Simulated assay, not measured.
Amino acid sequence: MKKLFSTYKSVVVFLLLFLGSYVLLSLLYGFYLELSKNGRYAPDFITNLVAKQSTAVIEGFGYFAQVIPHPTQPSMKLFVEGRFLARIVEGCNALSIIILFVSFIIAFAQRWKKTVLYIFSGVLLIYAVNILRIAMLAMALYKYPEHQHTLHSVVFPGIIYGMVFLLWLVWVRMLTPKSPPE
């Protein structure tokens, strides 16, 4: 058993760091969501902020956009040019994806300064791209409502998950020692 552990020590450490940080961050996020219930913002502060920032981006592209709290559900109703297009729910704020990203980076952490800077940069990039993604999805739904399922379920999740995957690849590449030229 000792030999097996020493052979796969790096894999075990990666899994423990990844799962440990993922569980801890997910519990903290769950606690945040629980505290947000019946609060000042619907559904929670970050989702509310993402909805308003996405609306500002839509308006930057020349459309009239508006978000209002849903009267009976924990979401924000998004309107473009007066037409109701979508509900922005807690899952749209990208925090779950950010938790996944951060957990992976922590599991591959080496030098803390470099790791913290990469996490900070990656979180900002994911957050910003998510706002652009919501705005682009809203505009696409406005122009092409018949493609709602494909846009919402395939194209736009692919953008955010694809970007996180690329950020992971860049991180692993940054940690891989460069071989000297031959």
Rank of each mutant, 00 (worst) to 15 (best):
Y127G: 05
A94S: 06
H70W: 04
H147C: 06
V172F: 13
K3S: 10
F101D: 11
A51Q: 11
T150E: 14
N38V: 00
A140V: 14
L4S: 06
V102W: 02
L85A: 10
V172A: 03
M174D: 08
A138H: 03
M76G: 03
C92K: 02
A42N: 14
Y22V: 07
S153N: 00
P69D: 15
M163A: 00
S36C: 03
S6N: 11
E182R: 00
E146F: 00
A138T: 05
L124R: 05
K9E: 14
S26V: 01
P180M: 03
L95P: 12
A51P: 10
L27Q: 06
A86D: 13
S26H: 00
V123E: 11
M1N: 11
A65L: 03
A94Y: 11
L141F: 07
R133H: 07
L49K: 13
N130E: 07
N48W: 07
M136K: 01
P180N: 07
Q66L: 14
F61Y: 14
V11E: 15
M1F: 02
K52Q: 05
I88C: 13
E90P: 06
Y8V: 02
K3Q: 15
F165G: 07
E146I: 04
Y41G: 10
G162C: 03
G122K: 08
G158D: 04
Y161I: 03
L25R: 04
P181N: 06
I46F: 09
A140R: 09
G82H: 00
R133D: 07
Y161G: 12
Y32Q: 11
I134H: 02
F79C: 11
F120V: 00
Y63I: 02
I131Q: 09
R83L: 14
V170C: 09
R111D: 05
R133K: 07
P157V: 02
L49G: 13
I99D: 08
F14C: 04
F14S: 03
V170D: 10
F165N: 14
V164A: 14
F18Q: 04
G62P: 12
A140M: 15
R83E: 09
G162A: 01
L169A: 08
H152V: 02
L28F: 12
F61Q: 10
V164M: 12
T55A: 14
V11M: 10
I134A: 10
T176H: 01
R111G: 08
F14H: 02
P181M: 05
T150Y: 04
F84H: 10
I159V: 15
Q53R: 09
V80H: 00
Y29F: 05
H147G: 05
L24W: 07
E182G: 01
Y41E: 08
A109I: 15
F5M: 12
H147N: 01
F64V: 06
S103H: 09
L175G: 12
Q73C: 00
F108I: 02
S21Q: 10
E59N: 09
M1T: 12
S153Y: 01
L24Y: 10
F31L: 08
S26L: 00
V80D: 01
F61I: 07
Q110A: 08
P74E: 05
I134N: 09
L78A: 06
I98T: 08
F14R: 01
L151K: 01
S54I: 06
L15V: 13
G91W: 06
V129H: 06
I98N: 10
